[in-house]
């Protein structure tokens, strides 16, 4: 078990190098640089341009910039934002809880609804219920995030006025962040209405971000269940005279969860990509908006560091999912 973790962690190093290289090169392929982005259309004298570029090290050859950057990262220094002059790690740790809160809620939403939906569709295979659920899942899966978000805002926020349009909480409430999670902090603040305000701000972003994972999990659960329901041991369970709930919910589902957990793990990466868009639509102050703004400002260190940190988290979650896989599947657990 221990050697398995070590091996997985060692495999992470080349992945990190590749991610660092790709973001480093990709952002430099985009026309413009941080200096030009700041001066705007009015232009700047060539001497001052050269001076600023020299200050930022942008006059060096790209390979040297990259090696310097790696050296810096190896020392745990992610650099400072060009536009705000704040260390990237500080900005990240301030903003990330908002994204994490949204991502966790979206994943919970997707899992709690997706698994039962898949189970129900599988046990009612070929019926109206099955077709409705799977049709809805396919629609959800195909829904572009920005459009789906705008539709929901238009309907629930503008027409019905049920939910707020943007932000994490009403401006009425103010309290010092303790955990960075608005749900917890608003609860801890004890201010009346703060918690419910935080919840109502979370609902739409959660649905928007959770829709694609929800559809994926529902479809995956259905197909895994269909396969498992035909297995001999499901018949054995029925031959014991167990209730349909025990047969499906315990004997079959336990086995069907093994592939579903893998899919949930893979969804975490997609969730991060979706979070960037969702946060932008709902003006959610997380790392998504932060990264998009850093592209517009050509803030190289923010973009590079931010993406490396996010991928680091995705990788860690995937390792955790692999470990969970072993917990669920005794055959793997003993093989290690």
């Amino acid at each position: 078990m221990f050697s398995f973790i070590i091996r997985r962690v060692l495999l992470v190093i080349p992945t990190f190098l590749a991610i660092a290289f790709l973001t480093f090169v990709a952002i430099r392929l985009v026309p413009g640089d941080p200096v030009e982005a700041r001066t705007g259309e009015r232009g700047i004298s060539p001497e001052r341009l050269a001076h600023f570029r020299h200050e930022l090290g942008l006059d060096q050859p790209v390979w040297k910039q990259f090696l310097d950057y790696l050296w810096q990262i190896a020392h745990g220094d992610f650099g400072t934002s060009i536009s705000t002059q704040t260390p990237i790690l500080t900005e990240f740790t301030t903003l990330f809880p908002a994204t994490l809160e949204l991502a966790i809620c979206a994943m919970l939403f997707a899992t709690i609804l997706g698994i039962p939906a898949g189970v129900i569709a599988a046990t009612r295979r070929g019926t109206f219920v099955d077709y409705t659920l799977m049709g809805a899942a396919l629609t959800g899966f195909s829904m572009p995030i920005f459009w789906w978000g705008l539709l929901l805002i238009l309907f629930f926020s503008v027409d019905l006025g049920w939910t707020p349009v943007s932000g994490r909480i009403d401006l009425l409430y103010y309290f010092e962040p303790v955990t960075g999670f608005m749900l917890i902090d608003s609860w801890l603040s004890g201010q009346e209405g703060a918690f419910s305000s935080a919840v109502s701000h979370l609902i739409l972003p959660t649905i928007v971000l959770g829709t694609i994972p929800l559809a994926t999990i529902a479809r995956m659960t259905r197909s895994a269940m269909l396969e498992i329901l035909g297995e001999d041991y499901v018949r054995t369970a029925r031959a014991k005279g167990l209730s349909p709930f025990r047969v499906v919910g315990i004997h079959a589902l336990r086995n069907a969860l093994i592939p579903v957990v893998t899919v949930i793990g893979l969804q975490v990466g997609a969730l991060m990509a979706g979070a960037v868009l969702t946060e932008y639509i709902f003006s959610w102050p997380g790392i998504g908006s932060w990264l998009i703004e850093s592209i517009q400002r050509r803030d190289y260190p923010v973009l590079q560091g931010g993406i490396l940190l996010v991928s680091g988290i995705v990788i860690v979650i995937n390792i955790l999912v692999d470990l969970l896989y072993g917990v669920l599947n005794p055959r793997i657990r003993h093989a290690r």
């Binding site: 001999d232 041991y233 018949r235 369970a237 031959a239 005279g241 336990r254 086995n255 005794p330």
Partner: peptide, 19 residues
């Protein structure tokens, strides 16, 4: 079923739940 009448199947390896 499972109490007064019980059944044993052909494929023992796949008839037990692996989990």
């Amino acid at each position: 079923v499972g109490k007064d009448m019980a059944m044993i199947f052909q494929e023992p390896m796949s008839s037990l739940n692996p989990c």
